[in-house]
């Protein structure tokens, strides 16, 4: 996993909290005699947002893992709540690559591996472009070599 992911998650978290924080701030500044609860909410949003933005990305980075073997794709993700996902290569249906705006900025990609189950996509976040490309090619080759309809 690229160390740049920390930056990515920091940006994402920052944007999320700014979207919550800024409108509140505007309202607070524009309204005459704002009620106390508005101030409390504003400060709470700010504090929680700051702590979350500061802590979550590096925590997440320490948790996240991914690995592929000739037989399976494996990820560990999350921070407070963590989740492992395993999908056997023989059951892979599609392999997608996706880049959000921030990811493009940082040169990162997400590789999504889906199986026939609606519940089982395995997402590998925060890969360098080249790593992602290599991974996709590698997985595609192994998948094609496997017979059957993978259900």
């Amino acid at each position: 996993m690229s160390p740049k992911s920390v930056l990515l998650w920091t940006m994402q978290a920052a944007v999320f909290w700014l979207v919550l924080f800024v409108p509140q701030l505007v309202v607070y500044l524009l309204v005459r005699n704002p009620p106390t609860w508005e101030f409390v909410l504003l400060v709470a949003t700010g504090v929680v947002g700051l702590v979350h933005t500061a802590v979550e990305p590096s925590w997440r980075y320490r948790v996240h893992r991914w690995e592929t073997t000739p037989d399976a794709v494996y990820t560990l993700s999350g921070w407070l709540n963590q989740e492992w996902r395993v999908a056997p290569v023989s059951r892979i249906q599609t392999i997608d690559t996706k880049r959000g705006p921030f990811q493009q900025l940082l040169g990162l990609s997400t590789v999504t591996v889906t199986t026939a189950s609606a519940a089982g996509p395995v997402e590998i976040e925060g890969l360098e472009h080249e790593t992602a490309q290599r991974l996709v090619v590698e997985l595609t080759n192994t998948t094609q070599a496997t017979p059957g309809d993978a259900t």
């Binding site: 492992w84 395993v86 059951r91």
Partner: peptide, 13 residues
């Protein structure tokens, strides 16, 4: 079975 999703929430851990 075509894969596993193993969840551990904060409290579960």
């Amino acid at each position: 079975i075509i894969g596993w999703r193993i969840q551990r929430s904060f409290f579960q851990r």
